[in-house]
Amino acid sequence: MSQNLKSASQSAHDKLKGSLYLTIAASIWGGMFVVVKIVVPSVPPMILVWSRYLIAIIALVLFCLQQKVDWHIAKRDWPLLIGIGLIGQLASIVFQETGTMLANAQIGSIVTATTPAFMTLFAAWLLREKLSWQQLLAVTSATTGVVLAGGGFHVKPQQLLGVGSLTIAALTWALMSVLLKKVPARYPALQVTTVGTAVALIGLTPMIFIGYPHFNWAVLTTPKVGAGILYLGIISTAVAFVLWNKGLQYLRASQSGLFFFFQPLVGSLLGWLVLGEALHVSFVVGCLLIFAGVGLTLREP
């Protein structure tokens, strides 16, 4: 009896710890949409992502040195770690940046918030996680809340390409998040994030120098753009990716996805505060539905 109570207490503690990591990471990404919208007019999406990863890899390597990470990785695990980098940190982020440029910060955060639904499906397929009525109700509640928080899904015809790009970003990010659950526990989140970021940076570098031979790199040193890229590289990439990957270790993939809804919540709020984007009355109702969905997830055994 005592052992069971101790186990239950530890499980609840781990769930709260994972929830905190995931909430902070998703909230940071919500603010990222606003930063991207400010910086993108001066910098093409591909160069923005490349610059962001260049800053991130420096920060991550320094973190790894400070933590004295053991870099021995089994040969059989390399394909999975490389695949995670290509799918999540390369493809997903490029589509996300492009979609945000073609749409707006609110639509960007709302469309990519379909990620939890995709995560639930991928978890059932790849991890054999069973879908409960509570999970489905939580996803439905939070998804409805996201649309309401953004004032409804008002998309102009010229923004459809952006919506398509953002949908691909959501799909690839969901797949990456579920694949992270298959990474052996002996590899810390910091190590997995560093490998994925390095893979994305290596994959992007040839495309950058072939596709943008005449880009004015001096733009990156201007105060506004430079500060934005530093934020995206250190906070939105290095710190947030590590927190997200670490949070996934404590919860099931289908549960973890619900915390992604804090991204559109923060994105919509900051889009209103900083960019002057419209914030509808339904925002409060949407917020309550999002919190209800997350609450259902936390209560699930």
Rank of each mutant, 00 (worst) to 15 (best):
K68N: 15
I58N: 03
L127E: 13
T143K: 01
V163Y: 04
T237D: 09
A238G: 02
I28K: 01
I55A: 08
A59S: 13
T172R: 10
S282H: 02
S51M: 12
V40W: 03
A142N: 04
F209T: 05
A198P: 04
A74F: 09
G83L: 01
Y21T: 07
I229S: 07
L22C: 02
I58H: 01
V163L: 11
F241C: 10
S236R: 04
E277F: 00
C287G: 06
T144G: 15
G18V: 01
Q159S: 09
L131G: 02
L5W: 12
F259H: 10
A124F: 14
L275M: 07
G228W: 10
A149M: 11
F118E: 09
T143C: 11
D77S: 05
V285E: 00
S42T: 02
P223I: 05
L80N: 13
A238Q: 02
S2V: 00
Y250G: 13
M101K: 04
T140F: 07
Q158H: 07
S9I: 00
V284T: 07
A189Y: 05
I107A: 04
S282T: 10
L269D: 05
W217I: 05
P213S: 11
A59V: 14
R52I: 12
I210G: 09
V139W: 02
E97L: 14
F261S: 13
T98S: 13
Q249N: 09
T297W: 00
L296R: 06
K37G: 03
K224T: 08
I107H: 02
L248Q: 15
A103D: 14
V147N: 04
S7E: 15
C287F: 10
F291E: 07
V69G: 13
L161A: 12
F209E: 11
G276K: 01
L265P: 11
F262L: 15
G267L: 06
I58D: 01
